[in-house]
Every structure is written in structure tokens, then in C-alpha cells.
Write a protein that binds this DNA or RNA. Structure first.
Length: 131
DNA sequence: CTATTGACAATTG
DNA sequence: CCAATTGCCAATA
């Protein structure tokens, strides 16, 4: 007979795979994951799936951040601290509960790849003096 | 069945 | 920077 446990819908599986595909030391936002999973615009679905996803799967949930690179949990929360700790262990620096997507973003802008990664520490508005 | 919610995103003021 | 608004759609009540 059918398993008592409801099988995970394809959408959930795709989302999990997308999350598991995030390289170590990098972070991705919900919209990005949804797009990778073939579900453009379903960023909230990613959150729902992650929430329901059992930790036994070993999904790098801590590599998933908001579109602005901010932690998806309220600051000071337990999950928040744990996420920050995990990211720190991966080599990702978190400042003010926020991560520089321009530095650790998974699919950051192509321009940065061509011009080289910007400095992460002391990132001020450096004037670009290229001609 | 309808209403509300949500680990979101983007825009506007 | 913050607040409010709209779009999105599955899961839950």
C-alpha cells in the first residue's frame, strides 16, 4: 500500500535540489533558488519547502538569504545565530545580519567577474577610474 | 468551499 | 533608511 508518508511533490524536490546545489562558501536568495528549480516567481514556495524540509536531509538552508542578502530570520533569533555561525564556518562574512551578495553571491553580476571581485572589507564607494 | 498566512520580491513615497 | 503597497501562489486554518 501506499506509504503513509506523502511523497514530496516534484516542485519540492526541485527546490531541494537547487538548494543543495549551492556551492560551499556562497549564498543564494530565495528568488534565485526558485528560478533554478524551474519555478520563477515562487520565492515564497522555497521558504515553505525549507520550513517543512527535515534537517536530516542535510540541506544547506543556511546558504539561502533574502534578495537583499539579509538573513530571513529576525535578528537575535536562534535560527538567526545558527545561520550566521554556519555561514562563518563556510567563510562567509555577515555584517549587521547582512551578507554582501556582490562578494559571496552565487550568481553575482557578470560585470564583477570581468572586472574582478570588489574588496569586501571597507567597501566604500570607491570611484571607478577606468576609462 | 473561502480566508488567512508566509524562511519572499520589487516598487514607490 | 524605513513604511506602505502590490504581486505571487502553496500551505494551512
Amino acid at each position: 500500500m501506499k506509504s503513509v508518508r506523502p511523497e514530496p511533490p516534484p516542485a519540492h524536490h526541485a527546490i531541494r535540489a537547487a538548494i543543495a546545489a549551492i556551492p560551499q562558501g556562497r549564498v543564494a536568495n530565495y528568488g534565485e533558488i526558485a528560478r533554478r528549480a524551474g519555478l520563477p516567481g515562487r520565492a515564497r514556495l522555497v521558504g515553505t519547502v525549507l520550513r517543512e524540509a527535515p534537517s536530516a536531509l542535510g540541506l544547506p538552508w543556511y546558504r539561502v538569504l533574502r534578495a537583499d542578502g539579509r538573513i530571513a530570520f529576525p535578528p537575535g533569533s536562534k535560527a538567526f545565530r545558527e545561520q550566521v555561525r554556519h555561514l562563518a564556518g563556510e567563510g562567509v562574512l555577515v555584517r549587521g545580519g547582512r551578507v554582501d551578495l556582490a562578494v559571496h553571491g552565487w550568481e553575482r553580476d557578470v560585470d564583477h567577474l570581468l572586472w574582478g571581485p570588489p574588496a569586501q572589507t571597507g567597501k566604500r564607494k570607491s570611484a571607478r577610474a577606468e576609462s
